[in-house]
Amino acid sequence: MEIIQVVNCTKDYHSDGQIVHALRGVHLSLHKGEFAAIAGPSGSGKTTLLNCIGGLDYSTQGNVYIEGTDISKLSPKELSRLRLFKIGFIFQAYNLIPVLTALENVEYILLLQGMGDSNRKRKAAEVLELVGLKDEMHRLPHELSGGQQQRVAIARAIVSSPAIVLADEPTANVDQKTGSALLDLMEHLNKEKQITFLFSTHDPMVMKRAHRLINIIDGMIVKDTLVKRKNK
């Protein structure tokens, strides 16, 4: 089943009176349970593509489907709900809410979804335990290391069991050892929970570990390699 379908997607920006073609007719399909990475140099359009898939930006032309829904036609409010229920985000700089503890940060998504108090706390605690932060769940983000913060961000992204997790250079701000551990964790979640991961990266380690590598240059997908199909 196709979780993401991008059809002939273009995105143009106006910059200093000139039109910049960030995406030029991109076609892409992702199936449930994939562990894929979009790789390319800076300015190649990987961030723009991720923005369009994540419903944070509208494409200029073409369509983006998430579980069969054309998100190009959704209003900002509908897009907000789609992001809440269908998509998990992991950001490069962790971007946790600084005044909430690790547990509260994870709970926050469930709270936005309207989950009840006891279920919410139990589920958030379970996910934090899953990412190895059982003993740190009551700490504030600034009391955690970079790797721990990114684990919280991963827990926040997967706690509501979204259709897909979009991760923007999740290893960029951590050392190689921590980055490797984070990838182990995400790969484990992908395998055990069938969560679809789509990374944007130029980290060779991520590219090496991805099961599918999508190369993008100048707004066009130039290579799409199935490195290794994961076991379903």
Binding site: G54, R81, R83, I97, L112
Partner: peptide, 16 residues
């Protein structure tokens, strides 16, 4: 600014 953007990107409504 960035933090508010993050909160909105993960689904927080403007009213919140």
């Amino acid at each position: 600014y960035r933090e508010i953007g993050i909160m909105k990107s993960i689904g927080t409504q403007p009213s919140w």
